[in-house]
Nucleic acid binder design. Structure first.
Lengths: 216, 216
DNA sequence: AATTTACCGTACCGAACGTTACGGTTCGGA
DNA sequence: TCCGAACCGTAACGTTCGGTACGGTAAATT
């Protein structure tokens, strides 16, 4: 009995195939994800779906979890950091994050999570936040604090500093994409935007140029 | 025959009552907005709903349009501006925008628009963007350009500058709220965040401290 | 070989919901 | 006063879809 149920362990190979099918349906059109369509796409029976995932909500949760857990923010070595390497780290973070939030998969996942966030069954948003926004913060804050320890950055609240960096990266891009605005991000554009965000972050929180309140 | 249909003129008083009912349903729970529930809440017949709005999508569009058009970004007088008044304007803008995006009504509208943005029937996102993000930009850009003309600000692309300001205001707040994160914004917190955003914007684009690329 | 297990494919059931139709009421104009 | 337009309340229809049941098959187990 390897039924993953609602909050089971890792899905096996076959279950991953099913979740991939569900994910593809989700990306194509979130409203088209029906139990029958997933079963058809994955060449499995609906009975199996219910045995493995309990109900539609369990399948949805497993799918979101399955994909969200694959978005892994790269770790960083806090030791031996200088201005150039820190800047490179931040640019890299910004570029990766822009790539993620503009991908079809991420947009589909965020859309379905947001769509049911109002309902009392809205625990998908928590999953997306945990593997996205919060995971990003946990990975980035040590970098910021290492930068502060090295005398490169200046702030009192790492959380507030991260929030500002987050805003400098995403700006209005994320919400516009979520709302269906046709915004084409080229690789070069992402690199430029990431560099601009890192540069602006240094302008605000760089140790040599303290400016801008960090917020209470 | 005053049927507003899909893209008709202003709704009359009775129709506004209906749209208010739909809006309340939407805020309570977007999934609970059904033709029967709207008719019951508004004490009207379903037949009337279909006569006035065509179909469910038309009712939804009219509801979003009805509310979105009520979010009016305050105009500003570009003449006679100095550092203090410009700063006050920006803080006011930031505070008002934070209030809007954290309101239950705005969140509900954005959620339903995002939820159907993936579908080919996703024109709600365009409405929300037009009355939200884009209206805001059109109102703010003259202010920024007035500030530049007065020698208070320094930038080459007003659009890019506005995007940065937008990011400094919203940061991760909007996406977290949309995803259902329990984030309580107090009036004092909004004021503080708005002041911080304006201060940071001045640090990046103030004429006396040019720093941070504006992005190509 | 017999049996159990897991699974696929399909059919089926019931509820929700969009949509249409109809009878009854109100009200303004001829 | 009569008529028709607009509208309310409710019933009814058809589809979609979540969830369940059942027969058939192949592989593993005993």
């Amino acid at each position: 009995m390897n039924s993953s149920q609602t909050s089971g362990s890792e899905p096996n190979a076959r279950q991953a195939e099913v979740l991939d099918a569900a994910l593809h349906l989700l990306v194509e059109d979130g409203h088209r994800l029906t139990m029958a369509s997933v079963a058809r796409r994955a060449s499995c029976s609906k009975e199996t779906l219910y045995k493995w995932f309990g109900d539609r909500d369990g399948l949805l949760s497993a799918t979101v979890q399955y994909q969200a857990s694959r978005v892994h923010v790269p770790a960083v070595d806090p030791a031996r950091i200088d201005r150039a390497s820190l800047s490179a780290r931040l640019e890299d973070f910004a570029a990766k994050w822009l790539s993620v939030i503009s991908s079809d998969t991420s947009l589909a996942l965020n859309r379905v999570a947001i769509g049911q966030a109002a309902s009392d069954k809205g625990h998908l948003g928590a999953i997306v936040l945990r593997h996205g926004r919060f995971a990003l913060g946990e990975r980035l804050k040590p970098v910021l604090e290492a930068g502060r320890a090295a005398g490169l950055l200046q702030f009192v609240d790492a959380e507030a500093a991260f929030q500002t960096f987050f805003g400098l990266i995403a700006r209005d891009v994320h919400i516009r994409l979520l709302l269906g605005d046709s915004l084409t991000l080229t690789a070069a554009g992402i690199e430029a935007d990431a560099a601009a965000a890192a540069s602006q972050f240094f302008a605000l929180y760089g140790a040599e140029a303290p400016a801008g309140k960090t917020g209470s």
